[in-house]
């Protein structure tokens, strides 16, 4: 039978909570027996999604961010949600180097990093309602799968 497990955390959209969210998800995923690199990949992708919620979703207002984390077999499924301003053009937002905030030194690499470090990234967003970013990654593949 396939192993399943779930957890959900909610926290204020303050940048000092980003390290807390990373540590919580990293601790939860240890049951999949990940490599250090897989943990680092997930932490980076999570950090990007949470930063987006703070900087763009809430535009630095303090509200709530939810991180939902599920394990289905060897797959880790992460969803980061906010109830902020939403994204008008998701396709445009996901283009590398595109940013709506070049003046505040945003690199425009957030979604590109999420896509680079996870297997799959899906964005659901409605203007005025919020955004949910779901990311999936297979963890701890059997040794054979690493071979070409």
């Amino acid at each position: 039978m396939e192993q399943t497990n779930e957890m959900r955390i909610e926290f204020d959209s303050r940048s000092c909570n980003e390290s807390f969210a990373r540590v919580a998800v990293a601790a939860f995923m240890t049951q999949l027996n990940p490599t250090l690199e897989e943990v680092a990949d997930v932490k980076t992708a999570l950090s990007e999604a949470v930063t987006n919620a703070i900087v763009h979703g809430y535009e630095n207002r303090v509200e709530k961010i939810t991180v939902h984390c599920a394990i289905r077999g060897q797959e880790l499924i992460l969803t980061v949600s906010d109830k902020g301003k939403g994204i008008a053009d998701v396709e445009k937002a996901m283009e590398p180097l595109f940013t709506t905030k070049p003046d505040s030194e945003r690199s425009g690499m957030g979604f590109a990093f999420m896509e680079a470090f996870m297997d799959e990234v899906q964005v659901r967003s409605a203007v005025g309602e919020g955004t949910a970013v779901t990311m999936k990654k297979k963890i701890g593949r059997p040794a054979g799968e690493y071979l070409d």
Binding site: K43, T44, S47, T51, R106, S107
Partner: peptide, 14 residues
Amino acid sequence: TCFMDSSGIGMIMG
């Protein structure tokens, strides 16, 4: 340093 994300990249570019 063992962790950096795109916010770090933005800061370095700035």
